[in-house]
């Protein structure tokens, strides 16, 4: 089995429903660190049921590791459900807040880019615009690439959150 490992590393998004209790996130993070799995990003927030939170988790690994991750997550007592979004259609969004230097000669250009990407300026200060953008990873990367020459001061990103298109 070891032979097959590492050949097909794939990026993978899991969506977990977990009990909204202290320590649950530590159990999930601890599982990943103890077993040497990778967490690329992780997002947690309560669902419509306040007792349940949804965790969107991006990880990488070959199919054996991903199978283990799924089973190990299922084994945690506080994890109610593990959805694997690889085989099913799903929508995925990142949100980024970007603070970009707004020199007078760049302001029009920034606003044009913001407009093209259907993002918006959420805060303005004498020297900076703070811009909010949502979309998939590629869109955000493209956006950041265009803004970079103006001088990006700070970025806060959520990492992907995801939902299946149909109820699963």
């Amino acid at each position: 089995m070891a032979k097959e490992r590492n050949e097909k590393e794939q990026k993978h998004i899991f969506s977990l429903l977990v009990e909204n209790q202290p320590g649950v996130l530590a159990r999930i993070a601890g599982l990943f660190s103890a077993r040497g799995y990778n967490i690329e990003s992780l997002c947690v927030a309560p669902t419509v049921d306040p007792e349940i939170s949804r965790v969107s988790l991006v990880t990488t690994g070959d199919e054996f590791i991903l199978e283990q991750i799924k089973k190990q997550l299922n084994k945690l007592i506080n994890v109610v459900k593990v959805y694997d979004y690889t085989q099913i259609p799903y929508v995925q969004r990142d949100l980024a807040l970007v603070k970009v230097r707004a020199k007078p000669e760049h302001r029009a250009e920034i606003l044009r880019i913001v407009d093209i990407f259907r993002s918006r300026v959420v805060d303005v200060s004498p020297d900076y615009y703070t811009v909010e953008i949502t979309g998939d990873e590629d869109k955000i990367e493209a956006f950041l690439k265009l803004l970079r020459p103006m001088g990006i001061k700070e970025i806060a990103r959520t990492g992907p959150v995801a939902l299946a298109r149909e109820l699963v």
Binding site: M1, A2, Q68, K71, K75
Partner: peptide, 26 residues
């Protein structure tokens, strides 16, 4: 050495814990 374990065998694995299955041997 896990790569040479039961090299000629098909494996039936019965266990109550799903994480034990496919963890170390196919």
């Amino acid at each position: 050495k896990v790569d040479t374990f039961a090299p000629n065998a098909k494996i039936i694995h019965i266990d109550i814990d799903p994480t034990s299955i496919q963890k170390n041997v196919p």
